[in-house]
Design a protein around this nucleic acid. Structure first.
Length: 431
RNA sequence: UCCUCGGUAGCUCAAUUGGCAGAGCGCUCGGCUGUUAACCGAAUGGUUGGAGGUUCGAGUCCUCCCCGGGGAGCCA
């Protein structure tokens, strides 16, 4: 007899199978008992009636939620079941019966309580589909680059210098020296791109910003790519292809999970259909002013501005060519207007905020030294980075994508903390 | 760091002008042969975040502190 996962149940209708999982919930009506069994791949209902098997009924009837168990029975089609089939329970083996009541209820609970029990919360409700969609998103990113001949590479997490001097970093002691947790692998990817041509990686990034919003965590996984011989416009084209690829493949692979989340998949598909608008920073400022926002040229856009832009275009939108003062030292200036950087942010629709930041990089020593000076950054920790411009420098571009932000958007989740298994927030380091 | 709203049963929330601390859910028990966060009935469950103050009397008013939610700035 086959041991299968619940996601495979549909194709085993009519067979006797064994499932291993946990008791998610239990309902009864008189002499019929319904066990909701979950195994991580889905939830399936096992049914037992008392007259058919009084002993089995009695055992099953007193099991508490989250009992780990093995159930064996015959699968049969049933239109009333959410997944189209259910199990006629034949036998049941308890692996462990919980020693205490499971604290997560299948009712509304407050975020604070749920976050305190994050290790248990992830077993319930929409958390499982969201984590599975997160998996699909990570994989779609890697597949996209693998299929295009990019080389997966690495960047260190422990660093001696910051990527952007302005952002707050987590500082730690490194054998008596100051070290920082990486906030981006970009500078190192620029080096590996000069070795390997076109590279990508997914790794953790840390920001010691005291942000407390639905879009922010202090630790998140960043997906970055860096390409030699690629300019600003080609960079944007690749980002657009990437985002479309991710959304389309996640929808294809995780249709059931998106359905469980009641995500409007048609809207999501429509959002990535056709070219993404590319709007000059200056035009974006004008558009926002017309829509009543109090922004002036040189201001960064906040969450309300990003939401307005997303609602206006109903698609991911590139804001490009920012004033150089707003952007970090490594971005190349637009040769046609040296006050602007060859950079773009990609703003997700529906108010999910910035999902990509990218640019063409400075590729000459003089330019790099000047921009380090203008940003009041010391040259010494960047000597190796400056070296990259000394030995056969080429035009190159890259970008970084916040994977959890993309997952939040795809899921239609209310908060980024829901799509990360153990999110690190300003006031949460446990569990 | 700032703004804002909160903290009452295991959970989610009520509590009139300052006047007996309550309900739903969960757990337990009972009922129901198709339940979908089942439903119906019963029982259980309290240091009202902490310290101090005002008052005959404080969950409620005052002061300070702690914790949480939402947002801003900054960013992906």
């Amino acid at each position: 007899m086959a041991t299968i996962s619940i996601s495979e149940a549909r194709s085993h209708v009519g067979e006797e199978v064994t499932l291993q999982g946990w008791l998610y919930n239990k309902r009864s009506s008189g002499k019929i008992l319904f066990l909701q069994v979950r195994d991580g791949s889905g939830v399936l209902q096992a049914v037992v009636a008392e007259p058919d098997n009084p002993n089995l009924f009695a055992v099953a009837n007193r099991l508490p939620r989250e009992t780990s168990l093995r159930v064996t029975g015959t699968l049969r089609e049933d239109r009333r079941a959410p997944i189209g089939c259910e199990m006629q329970l034949g036998s049941l083996e308890v692996i462990q019966e919980p020693t205490e009541d499971f604290p997560i209820e299948l009712k509304e609970q407050t975020p604070g309580f749920l976050m305190d029990h994050r290790h248990l919360w992830i077993r319930t409700g929409s958390q499982v589909p969201m984590l599975r969609i997160s998996d699909a998103t990570f994989r779609a990113f890697r597949t996209f680059f693998y299929e295009r001949g990019f080389v997966a590479t690495e960047a260190p997490i422990l660093t001696g210098a910051s990527v952007e001097g302005t952002t707050t970093l987590f500082e730690l002691d490194y054998f008596g020296e100051k070290a920082y947790l990486s906030q981006s692998g970009q500078l190192y990817l620029e080096a590996t791109a000069m070795a390997l041509g076109r590279v990508y990686w997914i790794g953790p990034a840390f920001r010691a910003e005291k942000s407390k919003t639905r879009k922010h965590v202090t630790e998140f996984w960043i997906a970055e790519a860096e390409m030699a011989f690629v300019d600003h416009r080609a960079n944007l084209a690749l980002q657009e292809d990437l985002v479309r690829h991710i959304v389309e493949s996640v929808i294809k692979e995780r249709k059931d999970e998106l359905g469980q989340l009641k995500r409007d998949v048609d809207q999501l598909l429509e959002e990535v259909r056709g070219p993404f608008p590319r709007i000059d920073y200056g035009d974006a400022v004008k558009l926002l002013q017309e829509k009543g926002h109090e922004v002036s040229f040189g201001d960064d856009f906040g969450a309300p501005e990003e939401e307005t832009l997303g609602n206006h275009f109903k698609k991911p939108v590139f804001i490009e060519r920012f004033p150089v003062g707003m952007k970090p030292f490594y971005m190349k200036r637009d040769p046609r207007d040296l006050s602007r950087a060859l950079a773009a942010d990609l703003i997700a629709p529906e108010g999910y905020g910035e999902i990509i930041g990218g640019s063409q990089r400075v590729d000459t020593v003089d330019e790099l030294l000047r921009q380090l000076d203008e940003n009041h950054l010391p040259r010494e920790p960047y000597e190796w980075y400056i070296d990259l411009r000394k030995y056969g420098s080429v035009p190159h571009s890259g970008f970084g994508m916040g994977l959890a932000r993309v997952v939040t958007w795809i899921c239609g989740a209310a908060h980024i903390r829901e799509v990360i298994a153990f999110p690190r927030q300003i006031n949460r380091l446990y569990p």
